[in-house]
Amino acid sequence: MTLSAESLAQIDKEIAKYPADQKQSAVMAALRIAQVEKGWLAPETIEFVAAYLGMPAIAVYEVATFYNMYELEPCGRHKITVCTNLPCQLQGADKVADYLKQKLGIDFGETTPDGRFTLREGECFGTCGSGPLCLHNNHKMHTHLSPEVVDKLLDELK
């Protein structure tokens, strides 16, 4: 198991941000980059990152399990995370979440049988002024959600 040359180049760029004896500081970025390439963090991916950074595998597992944007099990091609925290809830996040659940036929934490979508509940994204909102695959935010906006978004995600 290895990562693509492009992913490794990105990880090397992250490592260079920290003092030479503090490579471990790049572990969060390395796991993110690995997850973007592989879709989720399989044990062999985590072990690869550990070897690459010269860390014990257990230390990398600790990080991968602590932060909730890492996926430790296979997940759908499109992960949709909806913020349901209070400010978003007041602005209608529950209705959007219900609409998504009904439309995809799954609950939070589940994946559609065709492997296309995974639905997750998220905590505050620090963007409450534009809620209700969701994240697509951790990195792209969609704001001001309504059933129409959700329909359009889901159509675009093949």
Binding site: Q24, S25, L53, M69
Partner: peptide, 27 residues
């Protein structure tokens, strides 16, 4: 200056958790 990207843990806003996280550990 450099940027360090978090990955979903509110507690890392607490300053010493943030430092642990910057060091590549659990926050």
């Amino acid at each position: 200056l450099h940027a360090h990207h978090g990955y979903g843990a509110y507690v890392c806003g607490e300053e010493t958790a943030l430092l642990e996280s910057l060091e590549g550990k659990k926050g």
